[in-house]
């Protein structure tokens, strides 16, 4: 085992650690997925260099090939999932889906059940928040309560929408990835 290969292996290991930072901190799902792609490529490099360094190339190159094959399946599957999601959103917005040459719809099955559970929990959260707001306004003074009631009457629709959005954001933060409802 030569010193150069050991240094190279340590370098790639450090690079994997740096790439995992982007997996942890990436603001969107796609940043994380691209970081995962980089980390898996670095993993293939580690396996190849390790096969040379340990002088058992046939064994470790086979493992590297298998690792590369399985790492290729993840972006294709998730790309398919997100493209299907896009198709549904385009149809809902009434925008022409001219730039997508083929028709494709949302996968359903277990994903649909998960999406229904997500929506039920969302509704529960909204109801609980509304109850909490009502209690708060009852515990305040009479003047304040009247003011609150007026405000509520003025921006009733707007506030309900804001509540829903806030609850949805919280739920999404807890529950990644947000799932689909039925097709």
């Amino acid at each position: 085992m030569s010193t150069f290969l050991v240094i190279a292996l340590l370098t790639v290991a450090i690079l994997i650690a740096i790439g995992l930072y982007r997996v942890w901190a990436g603001p969107t799902v796609f940043d994380r997925l691209i970081a995962v792609a980089l980390v898996s490529v670095n993993g293939v490099v580690v396996l190849v260099l390790l096969g040379v360094a340990l002088e058992r190339p046939v064994l470790l190159f086979d493992i590297a090939l298998g690792f590369a094959l399985l790492a290729f399946l993840l972006p294709i599957t998730l790309g398919r999932y997100f493209e299907a999601r896009m198709a549904r959103e385009v149809v809902e917005d009434g925008v022409s889906s001219r730039d997508t040459p083929t028709t494709h719809t949302v996968p359903h099955g277990l994903l649909a059940d998960r999406g229904r559970a997500f929506e039920q929990r969302l509704a529960q959260r909204v109801r609980r928040q509304a109850a909490a707001t009502r209690e708060q306004s009852l515990s305040r003074g009479v003047e304040e309560r009247r003011q609150v009631a007026e405000d509520d009457a003025v921006r009733a629709g707007d506030e309900r929408r804001a509540d829903e959005r806030r609850a949805e954001d919280e739920l999404r933060a807890e529950d990644v990835p947000p799932a689909e409802d039925e097709a």
């Binding site: 090939l65 298998g66 094959l69 290729f72 294709i76 790309g79 398919r80 493209e83 299907a84 997508t100 040459p101 083929t102 028709t103 494709h104 719809t105 996968p107 359903h108 097709a183």
Partner: peptide, 26 residues
Amino acid sequence: MMTGSYPSEVVRVVCALLSPFILLFG
């Protein structure tokens, strides 16, 4: 039901090329 093909030509061609070799490697 998943209907239709993957909307990207690149992914379609590459997967059609690679999947027999993945099967062979298995």
